[in-house]
Design a protein around this nucleic acid. Structure first.
Lengths: 109, 109
DNA sequence: ATTCCAGGTTTGCGCCACAAACTAGTTGAC
DNA sequence: GTCAACTAGTTTGTGGCGCAAACCTGGAAT
């Protein structure tokens, strides 16, 4: 069943609220550590950790683990692909919103 | 763990791509039948049907079933609450997007 | 040496979105 | 009339995934 706008696709990997927050924050700051991301996104450690793993597996972010001041420090940055995808996702959302304003007449009851 | 923007919450019921499409379309056209929604959202009948049921149970849409030209005809409209929630959701998305542009400096690596 | 904390990771489970199968009625074709 | 095909939906089965909670690991304080 083809749809009128086959090219309007919301990527679930990015659309998921937690990951949308992560990706959007990263797209602004380029790189951030785990604690910063936790503060800005409001995610719990556990959820942040697993979302990051998922994003890394998908090639959207790179994760580097170091020790800073003798504490573990996880640094996260978007890959070029990640940047492309999150930018595109916001673009798709914008399209959905405006598309609904240019709809053919419904066959009303 | 409180988050900096506790009031920035993406309602999963609405955020789900299929339902976001349904709600956004409905917010533009006020009322639409099943077939129109299927065309505009690109959802399959099955998925559209179950999403509509879920939205109805949540009190976000009203569903009226009739026969038109001897065929079943399902008419869907937003409730006031539904209208409020979808409008608010787009507002929250906008906030997430702009919020990321006014972030404190990350502790970079 | 043992408790405590920071900074994460792993596990278990409950929900849910999707595709596929099913239902009910209608319209021809024969 | 009956059989096939179509329209307009609903129900079902299930795999995947997001979440909370439990767990881990090393440094520091007492």
């Amino acid at each position: 069943m083809p749809q009128p706008k086959d090219d309007l696709i919301l990527d679930r990997l990015i659309h998921e609220p937690g990951r949308l927050a992560i990706m959007t924050v990263l797209s602004s700051v380029q790189a951030a550590d785990f604690v910063f991301l936790q503060r800005t996104t409001g995610l719990t450690k556990g959820n942040l950790s697993s979302h990051l793993t998922k994003l890394e597996e998908a090639g959207l972010v790179t994760i580097e683990k170091r020790f800073v001041l003798k504490k573990p420090n996880t640094n996260v940055a978007l890959t070029p692909e990640g940047m492309r995808r999150v930018t595109d996702h916001w673009h798709q959302l914008e399209r959905l919103k405006t598309l609904s304003e240019t709809l053919p007449d419904p066959d009303p009851a």
